[in-house]
Write a protein that binds this DNA or RNA. Structure first.
Lengths: 155, 155
DNA sequence: TTCTATCCCATGATATCCCATATAATCCCA
DNA sequence: TGGGATTATATGGGATATCATGGGATAGAA
């Protein structure tokens, strides 16, 4: 499965192009698949993923009540989704819509969060990162079980 | 399962490279897997582990409420995680971000703590080590259960 | 045409590769 | 068991390749 880690800050040039970090790009080049970008439902950022993730959403919709609120929400995600094309240098073009939604301005921050990655205005991302770390230091660290029969938390 | 023990102090050269202790390196070379480094959530050090632990975090996120605080925390961990590449001499490159976060300066201390290891500024590690030992001498020693079918973790 | 997206080439920064060396650890044989 | 020989490890530095970025040229749509 796809795995996106680390953070990177890249420039948006005057043509609206931005380099996708090479290690993210490799995920798509290896499998010869496309990168899909959509507006995050809950945060003011863009979210990037592979076709697998998109298919998960589509399948989820198929199994839900057509009239439900959740269906509408997922459909909203899909309607904002764009299939991105890489140029020879591994860059993509961000639409004005995307740039506006994420309040991007000259520099974008890629933040790998596992199965997908986010694209942020650095000025909005850093305070959130700091806040989350501060919260964790106050003891709000999620417990992960690393051994089968253990109650050991992570710290 | 991976096992990291002992402490080592190695130099960070002017290119930002540092030798990973051979016995740590062997863990990854034997399984032909990568070393992952991330910023500790609770301490001013870096933490090193294998892909297994990363996968546990990713899987945990998949099964959690997207909007929960815990999800945010785990995503913060992943966004600081880097897959490290060994050069032919068994060194890795520490990014400026990592060096800054752990306040590293010329020398780094590797501290094996079982399933993972930590990378510290020696000046910060030694006082902590001493303090923990002093505390233990005053009776604060955890109980260890060696019973075969125990579910108790170390704490 | 005019605007814009795509292609193609150039460049600087820096990560990676490769070779060298000093020191420490291990081996091996008398 | 001692001590020289050999190997492993940590470190340093030059050469090379990769990556992010910039910009001109071309193609296509409005």
């Amino acid at each position: 499965m796809d795995l996106f880690l680390s953070t990177f800050e890249n420039k948006i040039d005057r043509k609206g192009r931005i380099s996708v970090p090479a290690i993210y790009r490799n995920v798509f080049e290896r499998k010869n698949t496309s990168l899909y970008l959509f507006k995050s439902l809950t945060k003011s950022c863009l979210e990037g993923c592979g076709i697998d993730r998109i298919n998960q959403i589509v399948d989820a919709i198929d199994q839900m009540d057509v009239l439900s609120e959740d269906t509408l929400t997922l459909q909203t995600m899909l309607s904002s989704t764009q299939e991105m094309k890489f140029d020879n240098e591994g860059r993509i073009m961000l639409s004005d819509d995307f740039i506006g939604y994420a309040s991007l301005d000259g520099i974008a921050l890629f933040s790998g969060i596992g199965r997908s990655f986010e694209i942020w205005n650095p000025l909005q991302w850093y305070p959130r990162d700091t806040a989350t770390r501060d919260s964790a230091k106050k003891g709000k660290v999620p417990k992960l079980s690393f051994a089968r029969n253990s109650n050991q938390g992570y710290s």
